[in-house]
């Protein structure tokens, strides 16, 4: 029962992430939506998969290792994209920008 609740939660989180990517104004706020919602949705969907499939426990542990790798790698990629965008001159729509002030 809990695995179907996790699946429903993961898919709804993914849908809200896509909605955020469509509605937010600039690159950085869109990265917020994509990073967090992808990580959370993939996490809950993979945990549900590990609970559902009829397999020996070693396979389930492998799926948990996959979730660990996703959770560790996803924020690093968003960090790289945000830094690269700021360095190549994509203007953020913000009220205060201390990064541009410190690195002119």
């Amino acid at each position: 029962m809990i695995e179907y609740a996790l699946l429903a939660m993961g898919t709804s989180i993914m849908v809200f992430g896509a909605l955020g990517i469509l509605r937010f104004p600039d690159v950085y706020t869109r990265l917020h939506a994509s990073t967090k919602c992808d990580t959370g949705g993939a996490l809950s969907i993979l945990i549900a998969t590990a609970l559902i499939i009829p397999a020996p426990p070693m396979i389930k542990v492998k799926i948990l290792v996959l979730t660990f790798l996703i959770v560790m790698i996803n924020p690093m990629i968003s960090h790289a994209i945000a830094r690269g965008a700021h360095r190549s001159g994509v203007e953020p729509k913000v009220v205060v920008d201390m990064y541009a002030r410190d690195n002119p």
């Binding site: 989180i13 809200f16 909605l19 937010f24 917020h32 967090k36 919602c37 990580t39 959370g40």
Partner: peptide, 12 residues
């Protein structure tokens, strides 16, 4: 992570 997902849904 769960709380931040709900926060992003609210902002979206």
């Amino acid at each position: 992570l769960l709380e931040s997902n709900f926060r992003v849904a609210k902002h979206a």
